[in-house]
Amino acid sequence: MSVKTESKLERILAAGHLAITSECGPPRGSDPEVIIKKGELLKDHVDAVNVTDNQTSVTRLSSLAACIHLKLTGVDPVLQMVTRDRNRIALQSDILGAASFDINNILCLSGDHQIFGDCKEGQNVFDLDSMQLLQTVRHMRDDGKFLNGDDINRPPRMFAGAAANPFAEPYKIRVPRLAKKIAAGAEFIQTQCIYNLDRFEEWMNGVCDRGLHEKVYILAGITPMKSLGMARYMKKNVPGMDVPDQIIDRLAGVPKEKQAEEGITICLETIERLKEVKGVSGFHIMAIEWEEKVPEIVERAGLFPRPKVSDE
């Protein structure tokens, strides 16, 4: 896959390195210090940092603004953009806004339903879905045109990504759904958190059988469990999350004060096993409210120091 953008993430992947991305949720306020601190904490240990877009539909500082703060600290941000809150005018406009700050990565999502957030009575938009947003990004970049066909002066040059959940129903379309996202323009994929390794490997086999791993970079989603309570909550309450009983049992088998450590150990074992899985191009480490653990995980997983790539 040839390099098409200035994205550091893309160049690391294209060079054949295992890439590392992480995640930063903007604050519920306008203080940029929180984001800058997270950026400083992560920047030497990861290749790019995703910025969530009003995740779980809770209103926060905008993803684009937070990406700009991160960019200024020297981080390569991944702008997460959901189609829930903006129509095609606003989406194209924000893509151009991000491109004007040379934000080089975008993750195209539909977004959680607003019923889970702080504006349950609000309208949702969904003018486009995540696949159509991918098509829009690629059209703007590759054809240099707006959706209506008009030329864009200095088109956005973004590395286009999408999410994939190998564990969600209906299972029979899990591989076809990835193929469809690639056809829509996805160049990298960040997966849902992986706890059920057998099922993930089964999905990856299907992906490789169709040669899809040669058309897209797949970053395996990793979230360390902070406690037994978190594991139980994710198993029971988070749709599309597959937490096998072995994970619960392992965390339950150690004293409460050792559970976080056990969570990190499980996470490192997961990374070790996934390094060997054909088609895995890197890891997307989402340490929820536990960002300070990311550098340790990267180091202990033998993925530090991060590779340097030229700016060419």
Binding site: D112, H113, A168, E169, P170, G240
Partner: peptide
Amino acid sequence: LLNGPCGGVN
């Protein structure tokens, strides 16, 4: 959504 299910199916 016009191109398939979101990840929230249960």
